[in-house]
Design a binder for these strands. Structure first.
Length: 427
DNA sequence: TGAAATGTTGGGGCG
DNA sequence: ACGCCCCAACATTTC
């Protein structure tokens, strides 16, 4: 009788709530991963994130081998795989950590139903976050839609709980199995040149001082690891110093946007604030193409987009600049930019990506006001004075010979203010 | 976690 | 000493 622990975006065997609980209760625990066709069919075969998942799973399989176990790995539609396993194996129970995205919520609901019909126990756990969507709410039970009061409540709640990484001692309860681990080509995965960097916590100490300066690379490269769960949020918090309030605040932003998406799933395809629905985007495809390639004639915008295209990363401040430029200067619907970032970012997460894009466009909850327009030239003066970041990504950058901006700042700014105002006046 | 436009202040040049 | 102008520096308002 097998007890399955189904990994999804919690790709680690340390401090994994579902695995921990299964190991505590049962002595035949089998870890499983399913490459989901619903997701993979939408991605190129050489997607770097799928490669990262594969590489991580291979590592997990080797860890499991040390405990005389192995990772079961499939590619297919999860509901079909589980139906098959329920028929072919003696399944005693299923355990997985909750995932709050709309697609994942629906998928998991269906799997829980399937197990219920088969009268087999299935358990889901909180693991991805410190607080789930209904654990940090206003007095009247409604969700917060403004960050600062949400954060205050989050911190109040956090002060009264104990949250430390779980320590596992019962790996002996892993199922004895020696299945061969599938090759990439057996799963239809092609290798990628773009790699996820290992995270480094050295940078966290002066994160609040350096985070705004893209050339200092004062970033932790933690985000893809949090996204795929190669490190848990509890482990990250345990590594922080007490004074890392800014970094902790970023982790709270993560949970803020997760609960926003869970409470307001319509934002996946709609403005959070519908009064912006009447803003008439220009949606010029040539402009969009130039933005994607990093050929806008604004060096800081181009550098950011080239970093993204070449590495799958983009410095946070530059994300705000490039996103703001697409929405405000080019007047292109934030959904276009969101979709592009979704393709390219190694740390892509629906809730954070959507939340931050809507912030940039001014359409989101607690967002930047529409008239707050970044001046790409001023931003260089403030945050990349030495042009170090720009020169890293725009080779041989030379102010005098650099291509002209695709749109002049003053003109674009005034056009943006006019178009937004006209849109809002239609309400 | 904005930037531009507009308003205010005060020092210096000058008649 | 005074009034006037200019303008930089800073503050406030506006988008």
């Amino acid at each position: 009788m097998i007890n399955y622990v189904w990994l999804r975006r919690d790709l680690r065997i340390e401090d994994n709530t579902a695995l921990h609980n299964a190991l505590e209760k049962y002595n035949k625990v089998q870890v499983i991963f399913i490459f989901d066709d619903h997701i993979l069919e939408e991605l190129p075969k050489d997607d770097p994130r799928v490669n990262f998942i594969y590489d991580t799973l291979e590592k997990i399989n080797r860890q499991l081998n040390k405990h005389n176990s192995s990772l079961t790995c499939f590619r297919g539609k999860p509901e079909a795989i589980w139906e098959m396993l329920l028929k072919e194996k003696k399944v005693n129970s299923l355990h997985f950590n909750r995932d709050y995205e709309p697609y994942a919520t629906l998928r998991d609901e269906n799997i829980l139903q399937l197990f219920k019909r088969n009268k087999i126990a299935a358990f889901s756990y909180k693991d991805q976050v410190i607080f789930e969507k209904d654990e940090v709410v206003k007095k009247d039970g409604l969700p917060y839609t403004v960050y600062t009061p949400y954060k205050n409540k989050w911190l109040t709640n956090y002060a009264s709980i104990i949250s430390t990484p779980l320590v596992d001692s019962k790996f002996k309860n892993l199922n004895n199995s020696q299945q061969p681990f599938p090759l990439k080509k057996e799963l239809g995965i092609h290798p990628s040149l773009i790699k996820v960097k290992p995270f480094s916590l050295d940078q966290l100490d002066n994160y609040s001082k350096t985070r705004d300066f893209p050339s200092l690379d004062g970033t932790s490269y933690l985000s893809p690891h949090l996204r795929f769960g190669t490190i848990s949020v509890r482990q990250v918090i345990a590594l922080l110093n007490k004074e890392d309030q800014i970094f902790l605040s970023e982790l709270i932003w993560r949970e803020f946007f997760m609960q926003i998406l869970a409470h307001f799933p319509k934002i996946q395809t709609n403005n959070f604030k519908s009064k912006y629905d009447t803003v008439k985007w220009r949606n010029n495809e040539e402009d969009f193409e130039k933005w994607c390639k990093g050929e806008t004639g604004y060096p800081i915008v181009d550098a950011g987009m080239r970093q993204l295209n070449e590495t799958g990363y983009m410095h946070n401040r530059v994300r705000m600049i490039t996103a703001g430029f697409l929405c405000k200067h080019l007047l292109i619907d934030w959904k276009w930019g969101e979709a592009y970032f979704a393709q390219k970012l190694l740390d892509y997460d629906l809730s954070a990506n959507n939340g931050n894009w809507q912030w940039s466009a001014g359409t989101g909850c607690d967002s930047a006001p529409y008239f707050r327009i970044f001046n790409p030239t001023e931003q260089i003066k403030k945050f990349d004075k030495e042009l170090k970041y720009i020169r890293t990504w725009v080779k041989d950058f030379d102010e005098l010979t650099y291509p002209a901006p695709i749109v002049e700042h003053k003109f674009a700014r005034e056009r943006c203010l006019r178009i937004y105002k006209e849109g809002l006046s239609k309400n």
